[in-house]
């Protein structure tokens, strides 16, 4: 029997490498009827900001070939609401909880992390550096090394448990950003976030999304994500968490073989609400069939 457990360091131990991607699984509770939440490697909840955010106007979604564009715009009720209303409902789950943190300036990230520190069951934060930096004209922190470093070090100062930095793929060389956040104190990196994309309603001659552009996710991005994970895993020493278009166990294995220590399931949850559990079963079945005893053997 394969041992699917994995230790990502600094107290983040997973029973299996399958986590939920932020923004695609709510707070877990939304899927409680169709997924055994206690089986998941970890639950990464919705992007959380210091203050409540209404997000972008409707329409926020466009279906695309083998994927979708979204422009949700980090709608959430803020970190204090998470602490008082959501956390009590999910803290007794067996799976470790990870909060995805977003902000528009480094101080926001630091403050959200500080407030989350009181929550014992939050074993890690995942810092979303794809957010626009308001002070620098809205360019995403994650697209420059200096922006990524600023956010990482601000979060690091107020968070002493496991710190994941989630990288934006909208860059020329993702390994450069990965090395920068590693040097600034990240305990692991997760990649990829969504690719900037656009869709036009040809009949009405207008963009489909209210924001014109949005984030592309789903299997259409998978080969690019696998390539980026492969490159990044070779250039940093910290664990790499892979995601981008994983629909089933086979897809997850691709990332594990490319050098990822764990994976996240995102858009697949919309297509197959039990995708997370199915991926766990399929990885396990594959390993048993191939006589693999530990996940590290998978890496090519």
């Amino acid at each position: 029997m394969v041992d699917l457990s994995i230790d990502l360091g600094k107290g983040l131990r997973l029973a299996n490498p399958v986590m939920t991607a932020s923004g695609t699984f709510g707070y877990g509770l939304e899927f409680a009827d169709v997924v055994d939440l206690n089986r998941l490697g970890a639950i990464i909840v919705k992007g959380t900001t210091l203050n409540p955010r209404q997000g972008n106007p409707y329409p926020r979604m466009a279906e695309t070939p083998s994927g979708m564009l979204n422009a949700v715009g980090l709608q959430n009720k803020g970190v204090d609401y998470f602490i008082s209303e959501i956390y009590p409902k999910i803290k007794d789950l067996e799976s470790p909880l990870i909060v995805n943190v977003s902000g528009s300036q480094p101080e926001d990230y630091a403050e959200v992390c500080r407030r989350l520190s009181s929550l014992e069951r939050v074993k890690a934060v995942e810092i979303n550096i794809s957010c626009p930096n308001v002070k620098q004209g809205g360019m995403a922190f994650g697209t420059t090394c200096s922006g990524a470093e600023k956010v990482t070090s601000a979060a690091r100062e107020s968070w002493d448990r496991h710190l994941i930095v989630k990288l934006s793929p909208n860059v020329t060389d993702i390994t450069e950003i990965a090395r920068a956040v590693e040097a600034t104190g990240a305990d692991s990196v997760s990649l990829v976030n969504t690719f900037l994309g656009m869709a036009i309603d040809v009949e009405r001659r207008r963009p489909v999304l209210s924001t014109v552009t949005g984030g592309l996710s789903g299997p259409c991005i998978r080969p690019i994500a696998v390539r980026m994970v492969w490159q990044t895993a070779k250039s940093v020493k910290i664990p790499v968490i892979g995601l981008g278009g994983i629909m089933d166990g086979r897809d997850a294995l691709e990332f594990l073989m490319a050098g990822a220590s764990a994976v996240e399931i995102g858009t697949a949850n919309f297509v197959n609400p039990s995708a997370t559990e199915d991926v766990i079963d399929e990885i396990s079945e594959y390993c048993n069939r191939h006589g693999i005893e530990s996940l590290s053997e998978l890496r090519i």
Binding site: E30, R60, M61, N70, V72, N269, F270, P273
Partner: peptide, 21 residues
């Protein structure tokens, strides 16, 4: 227009008078 149907993706929002989106 919807994706998840479960209240998880926040794609299908309507702006309401009492609670916003």
């Amino acid at each position: 227009v919807m994706a998840c149907g479960l209240g998880a993706c926040l794609c299908c929002v309507e702006d309401t008078a009492d609670k916003g989106n």
